[in-house]
């Protein structure tokens, strides 16, 4: 177990190193002079020179990289050109909003996905199974940004049940209740695809487990069918499901970009889209770094959780 953990930590560090190089290179991949692009066509030559020196763009690349990384490690991701503020605090406050949205969506996706998957597997090849399969297929085929807009038309505009956008109402003090009401639509929209993925995975995993000999052994012992499903099949399915956590986190973080745009949710995804359109490179760079780092950490956690839940990994 200890060896497994060290191994995983080490590979996470290596991946993060690769990520940092890639993110660093993004700025330098840009065709044309990033400084000129940032400042726009009206910039004066003096300003360009000053910003270039300020950003250290005149130094050799490795020097720039080391400086950038060591600053990043100290929490200094530069200043936003547009906002003229340090990048990190801005990113973190936006990231918090994204996390709230993603966690809410994950709760919906896992609870409903598991339920649908188990129902499907237990009713293998019956009508319910087909309906769930069709629904899952439809869910993964619907772009979140479109579903979100339909939701706004139906539930915000026509029925007036839910707010159309934002995290809180424009006026008044923020409260948990207001947050919850604002969360319902974006979180459900974001949950749709991961829910379908979980339902399908749960179904196939559950069917595989139900076909294994130990399930038959349990039945031969006289354990009632429902208890076999709960005590034997579901546990094994859940452990397998842990491996899906990382993938799900990826789907959620990615989908957040669109859902946040549609619902004007003040998250890191919508921040980055704005930043790209406004050529605010430090924000983009920092945002990519923050999300990628947390994604790597989530994957690391997933593996450790899996190791903790599965005795076969635990001892080795």
């Amino acid at each position: 177990m200890r060896r497994y953990i060290t191994q995983r930590l080490l590979s996470a560090v290596i991946v993060l190193f690769g990520v940092s190089i890639l993110v660093f290179m993004v700025l330098h991949l840009t065709p044309g002079d990033p400084v000129e692009i940032m400042l726009g066509p009206t910039a004066r030559p003096g300003d360009i020179e000053r910003l270039r020196a300020e950003l250290g763009l005149t130094d050799p690349l490795p020097v720039q990289y080391v400086r950038w990384v060591s600053r990043a490690l100290q929490g200094d991701l530069g200043r936003s050109i547009q906002l003229n503020r340090p990048v990190l605090p801005e990113l973190l406050s936006r990231f918090q909003a994204t996390l709230i949205l993603a966690v809410a969506a994950a709760i919906i996706a896992f609870s409903l996905g598991l339920l649908l998957g188990v129902i499907s597997a237990v009713n293998h090849n019956k009508l319910v199974d087909r309906v769930v399969a069709g629904f899952a297929m439809l869910a993964v085929s619907m772009p979140a940004f479109w579903v979100g807009m339909i939701g706004i038309v139906v539930f915000a505009v026509n029925l007036r049940w839910l707010p159309a956008s934002g995290m809180y109402p424009p006026q008044g003090a923020p409260s948990w209740g207001k947050l919850l009401v604002h969360l319902i639509m974006p979180a459900t929209t974001l949950a749709l695809v991961p829910m379908a993925v979980i339902a399908r995975f749960t179904r196939s995993q559950m069917l595989e487990v139900l076909g294994q000999e130990f399930v038959l052994t349990a039945r031969a012992k006289g354990v009632p069918r429902a208890r076999v499903i709960v005590d034997h099949a579901f546990g094994n399915t859940l452990v397998a499901l842990i491996t899906l956590l990382g993938l799900e986190a990826g789907i959620l973080l990615a989908g957040a970009v669109y859902v946040e745009t549609v619902f004007a949710w003040p998250g890191i995804g919508s921040l980055m889209v704005e930043a790209i359109l406004k050529r605010d490179f430090p924000i983009v760079q920092g945002g990519v770094l923050v999300i990628a780092t947390s994604y790597v950490l989530i994957n690391l956690l997933t593996d450790l959780l899996h190791a903790a839940a599965d005795p076969r990994i635990r001892v080795t």
Binding site: F214, L216, A218
Partner: peptide, 11 residues
């Protein structure tokens, strides 16, 4: 059953 590797619940 035949296969003791698979006839026990691993968890």
């Amino acid at each position: 059953f035949q296969d003791p590797m698979t006839s026990l619940n691993p968890l």
